[in-house]
Structure formats: structure tokens, C-alpha cells
Amino acid sequence: MILVAEGLRKLYGEFCALDGVSLGVGAGEFVSIIGPNGAGKSTLINILTGLTPPSAGTVRFKEREIHGLGPVGLARLGMARSFQLVHIFPDLTVLETLQAAVVARLGRGTRLFASLAGDRDVQREALEVAELFRLSDKRGALARHLPQGDKKLLDVASAFALRPEIILLDEPTSGVSTADKTAVMETLVEASKRIGLQAILQVEHDMDIVFAYSDRIIALHQGKVLADGPPSAIQADRYLIDTVIGRRARTH
């Protein structure tokens, strides 16, 4: 297992957002976390990515306890993430955003007098990622001027530009039109193959996407893991479907 969480608990005052959650993500896996609103999905992602400390429990990434590493340390260790709400750099262009990720990955951020435009490695890698995510023709556009779907794609693309070993995606298709969701997911899968990504862990509400792309699904409900299994097993469990997904999803 590349990422292992054991006994995660998160309290906000008296409210228990996560209650003893344990999970693992192995190399080559595409794992989806599902659950109704308030189940603790985003809290779980935030803890797994070092953004929020757990009240109890441990997270190990590549056999290393992540406590105290923080997002910067985790990014350097090979973990990337995207956010549920789009996180971009509004006043940077698409290309600058991707260059920033590449600069950070190559550890060249402290080069004070080096020319960014003259750094061929950074330029090449940033353009490659832009092409991979079909953002090449918008590379000169300010991120704030992009359509919502492209902003989301840029957020994810910048995470991919880190060439991580695992990526955690918090609702990668939220804000993307229904017609474009499959295209976004295909782009993600293609990009993950191209950069040699070992694992993807995503939180997703769109069950069509979840069932179509996941190797394994973890269902959360009221801060606890209700089920952890392949899509076929999740689909076959009517109680689970009713509890976690809702009746509308029976048709899947």
C-alpha cells in the first residue's frame, strides 16, 4: 500500500466528522470515496494531504508517517491534490501556473537571478502538461478569465505537473458540465498513464463517473467507513445504495 490511514478520528468541538476511519490505497489503484454530504469526505482528504491534523489516528505515505510534514513536505514526497472548490492563481496565466508547479518539483524556486523564460526544462515540461490537458491554446490566458471547467482542469493539471506518485482529487468534475465530465476523466486517466502516476484517490458525487473509472470504492457515512470494495459489490448492495447514494442511484 502506498497510502495507509489507520483509526482516523476528527472532532470539531463535539461534532465527530471522522470516527475511526482506516483505509489503504495500493499502487496502480483508482479509488473513489463516496458518501452523502457531511459524511466526512473532504475532511478525510484534508487529513490525508496534511492540510488538517487528525484528532487521532495515523496516516503513512510510502511507509512514512506524514504527521508534521504539511502540504509542502507531502508535495515533495510525491503526493499532489486538487481541491473541491477551484484553487487557481487568478493573476497567473495557464502556462505560468504550470511552470510554477514544475519549478517547485525541480526545486528551482530559490533561483533568484535565473531566467524563467530561459529555463528549457521548465518550459518543456509546462508545455507538455498544457498539451496533455488540452490547455495549450489557452496557455497565455489569465487563469481568472478561463471558463469554470478549464479552471478546474488547470487546478488538476498543476497537480499533475508535480509528477506525483499519488494524486488526491476532491470532486474533479464538480463545476464541469455533464457533457464534459467524461472528457475530463479520460484526460485524467490518459495523463496519469503518461506521467507514471501510481495511484488516484478521488472524492466524487457523480456515480456514473465513480462506477466507470474506479477499481475500488470506499463508502463513508456519518464519519465511518460503511463499505470498501469493487464497484460491482457496491452496486449490488441495495442497503448501501439507499444509505450512501440515495434511491436515484439504483438505476446505475
Binding site: 509542502v72 508535495a75 505560468e96 510554477a100 528551482r108 524556486g109 533568484l112 537571478f113 508535480l162
Partner: peptide
């Protein structure tokens, strides 16, 4: 040179969105 260097770009990411910059390892 400083503002057009990789260092300058990293500063701009921090100005725009420090939380995102941290997830990129800055």
C-alpha cells in the same frame, strides 16, 4: 531579473493563493 526568475514566479503564486502554492510544494 528577480521578478522574472523562478523565485519571482513562486512569489506570485503565494500572492495569489498561498494554500494552493503550498500544495505545489512552495
Amino acid at each position: 531579473r528577480i521578478v522574472h526568475s523562478p523565485f519571482g514566479l513562486c512569489l506570485k503564486t503565494i500572492r495569489d493563493n498561498p494554500a494552493k502554492a503550498e500544495t505545489l510544494g512552495i
